[in-house]
Design a protein around this nucleic acid. Structure first.
Lengths: 209, 209
DNA sequence: TCAATAGTGTCTGTTAGACATTATGGA
DNA sequence: TCCATAATGTCTAACAGACACTATTGA
């Protein structure tokens, strides 16, 4: 009876680099191809903690958000996790940010893991503070809107975005402003959720139909 | 070096029985305690297909909806799947429906798996046709509303529910009606999604805050 | 002064929820 | 006749999106 290959964790760690969504990749073994960071599944202990430590070592910073995506069988079992780190995260030696389009284009296992991971990130956008974890501690509302537009892949209405965001009491203004080349300086905000929305979401039917 | 215990799949198969949400449990080994259905992870092949076959054999019917929940480490790796079968599903010998409250109260591994599975079901309610898969092919709108109310654990507004549902073009009326004791008979509908919603969902911020 | 970006005020169409009312069966 | 449930019409408050406008900086 052949011994079963050991299962491992794979990490799809996201950041926004140069205005586009990128995933962290490290140098592969023999063929120097970039691959997703991996580690063996620990024989005992929490999977989430193991994934968090994988993210911390491979991105050089503890992830602000991390969540299990799922498992696929690729010879061995692969447990995929999606993570988010802020824009300004410098990868350690041997690791680098690869734009998602390019990372998926390499095909292979990475593509099979990245796509569902990004779908999860998109779908968690309104439940978890993942967009805020892709930004530094303070950010302008335009920064935040850009994150949403990148992840949702559609333009959002500025006034409406701000109105809804402020009504949700998720951010609070700091007294810092940032001047970015031309144009009026932007006020910086920090993520500071105050309270849960009183009203639950209305029932929606967004089935694929 | 100790050999790693073999990973297995566990199934949280949901149905609505006697007006409440129930999960399928089978008779355990030595202590005749009910446990979730399980099977070994196949050495090769698709995990989803394996889970689907587990659901079909243990519920006696192919699940109308099934989706991977996640993996937990409990000595061995456990890959959990959530599934839905219609209300009228009769479990085969050795299996039975257990109300979720009772199933969770037994504690142990089952409780750790059921809770996230139900959370997934709830969160997929507006993306996948899972509510329809908990009902027979034809159903009244009150049936459907009851499913939503059970899963969301809150009362819904009848007129609003119908208006939104019909506007989504997800169901079509049949020419059958069902008389249920007193009261006006209800028209029966079938799930027949016509087209995708034209407008994408507005951006919402439903963070825990 | 112009260009560019941040931020705000107002209007309008849509819709969710409240409420009331009609419809249609069984007891 | 009464009761219970289905189904529908109308009103209103909330809100998303459109548009126009003001504000504030650098070039």
């Amino acid at each position: 009876m052949p011994t079963r290959p050991a299962p491992f964790l794979a990490l799809v760690c996201c950041a926004i680099v140069d205005g586009e969504l990128a995933v962290l990749m490290v140098e592969g073994a023999a063929p120097r191809k970039p691959v997703l960071p991996t580690r063996p599944v620990p024989r005992r202990g929490d999977l989430d903690a193991a994934a968090r430590s994988l993210a911390t070592t491979s991105a050089g910073r503890a992830p602000g958000w991390i969540k299990q995506v799922g498992a696929v069988a690729d010879g061995a079992l692969v447990l995929t996790f999606a993570a988010a780190v802020p824009t300004d995260t410098e990868p350690p030696a041997g690791a680098r940010w690869v734009p998602v389009a390019k990372a998926i284009a390499t095909g292979g296992l990475a593509a099979r893991l990245i796509r569902p991971a990004l779908t999860l990130v998109r779908e968690r956008l309104d439940r978890d503070p993942v967009a805020f974890r892709l930004l530094p501690p303070t950010f302008s509302l335009s920064d935040l809107q850009q994150v949403y537009e990148l992840l949702l892949d559609r333009r959002l209405h500025k006034a409406s975005f701000r109105r809804t965001l402020l009504a949700a009491h998720l951010v609070e203004p700091t007294d810092a402003w940032r001047s970015e080349g031309r144009g009026r300086p932007a006020q910086l905000f920090r993520f500071a959720p105050r309270r849960r929305r009183a009203a639950p979401r209305p029932v929606r039917f967004e089935l694929l139909g």
